[in-house]
Simulated scan of single mutants.
Amino acid sequence: MKNFIEKILHQNVLISSYEKLDQFSLFFQKSVVFNNITIGNMEAILVKPIENMNLSMIRHIAQEIGNKTNRVCIFYFLKLSSYTHDRLIEEGISFVWEEKEVYIPCFGYYLKQNKNTVLSVNQISFLTQKFLLKALYEEWDHLNASDVAKKLEVSKMSASRIFSEIESLGIPVLNTNGKRKVYRKQGTKKEIWDTIHDFLRNPVIKEFHLEQDIDADLLKSEMTALSSLSMLEDRKYPVYAVLKRDVKEKGIHTMSQIPYNESPGCIVQEVGYCISFHHDLIDPLSVVLMFQDNKDPRIEKAIEQMLEEYVW
C-alpha cells in the first residue's frame, strides 16, 4: 500500500500505529484498524475496515474521525463496489483502493499550501459546484464549514474540503478571520453568478441515446427543462437527468441505444449532481452550463428569459 500511494502521488509516505484509540468507542475499535499516515507534509488517519462496511457506517466513521482528530480520514479498501466507490467520490470521502486507485481530494490543496504544486486543484468538483449553486439560490450567508455540512448533509471534513477547493481555485466568495473561513453572500444573485460562472463546468458526464422514451419519474434536463421555463419549443424527444447510481438502479445502461446521428426516443444524461427545480426539472443555472458552448440565438434568448423570470 505504501509503495502504491508513493507511486501514484510522487510523495514520501509514512505509516505508523495510531495510539489514541480511547477517543473512539469500542465498536469503532473493533470495526476498523487505525493508523497514522503522513503523505508529504500532510498528516491524516488511515482506516482499514476489518469486515465489509456499508456506506452509512463509512460516512459515520469519516465524520467522527474528522470531528475528534481534526484530520483527514482516509479509508483503505481491499474491495469496493461501484456504487460505494461513486458515492465516496460524490461526497468527497478520501480512500485508497488496493492497487487500483487513490482518491484524496484535499491533497492537492495541502500540496499547494506547502508550496508544492504537483497536484494543485485545476477543476472544480461537483460537490463544490453544487454548494455554490445552492448557496446562490437559497441566498446563504455567513456559513462556516459546520453550517455547510448540515445544509448539504455531508461530513464536516467534506465541507472543509469544499472551502479548501474554493480557496485553491481562487473563487472570491470566502472571508477569512484568522484560521476561520466563512462563506459570504457577495452581492445579488446575478452578481454572484458573474463571480462564480467561469469556475463552473458542464454537469453532464455521459449521455444515453435510448431507442424508446423511458417510463420513469426523472428530472427533465437540458432542452426539455429550458423549454419548460421559457417560450422555446422542445425537441421531438425529451431529455432527462440522473445520477450515476440511477443509471444502474433503473437499468438505463442495459436499455437499447441508437447512434448519436439518429433521432432517439429520449436522451438520459448522467450528471455529477442534481439540484431539483419545481420538483421535476434540473435547476436553471445547471441548464445554462449545459448550453455553455451553444451559439444558437434562439437558445440564448430563451436562457435570458428563464433567468430573468426564475432566478434573478
Rank of each mutant, 00 (worst) to 15 (best):
I282S: 01
E99T: 11
Q292E: 14
M231L: 11
F131P: 06
S125P: 11
P284D: 04
E19I: 09
I162D: 07
L127K: 11
S155R: 08
Q257F: 07
D296S: 09
R161F: 09
F4D: 01
I93A: 09
S155P: 00
A302F: 10
K48C: 05
R184E: 13
Q292W: 01
P259A: 06
F107K: 05
S120A: 13
N175G: 04
G251W: 08
I196D: 03
K150Q: 15
T254K: 12
N261H: 14
A62T: 04
F199R: 00
I124N: 03
T128S: 11
G40Y: 09
F163P: 04
V13P: 07
E101P: 05
S286Q: 04
I258T: 11
L200G: 08
I267F: 00
K2Y: 05
S146K: 09
L111K: 05
F27Y: 15
E90Y: 14
L229F: 00
Y183S: 03
M255P: 01
P284C: 03
G272D: 09
N294D: 13
A302T: 06
K181L: 14
I299S: 01
F126W: 09
S31H: 08
P105Y: 04
F131L: 10
I275E: 07
C266V: 00
I275P: 00
N114H: 15
C106G: 15
D283K: 00
P297E: 10
S25K: 04
H60N: 12
V154N: 03
P259Q: 02
T188I: 12
K295C: 02
I5D: 01
I65G: 01
K156A: 14
V96G: 07
R180P: 04
Y237L: 10
S164E: 14
M157V: 11
E304T: 12
D280S: 05
S16V: 13
C73I: 11
S17Q: 12
L229E: 04
M157N: 03
E138Y: 15
K250F: 13
Y109S: 02
I37G: 06
G108L: 06
F208I: 02
S125I: 10
K112D: 05
V121P: 05
M157K: 10
Q113M: 14
K112Y: 08
S221L: 05
M157I: 07
F126V: 10
R245W: 12
H278W: 03
R59W: 11
I162S: 00
I258V: 05
E270I: 03
M157H: 03
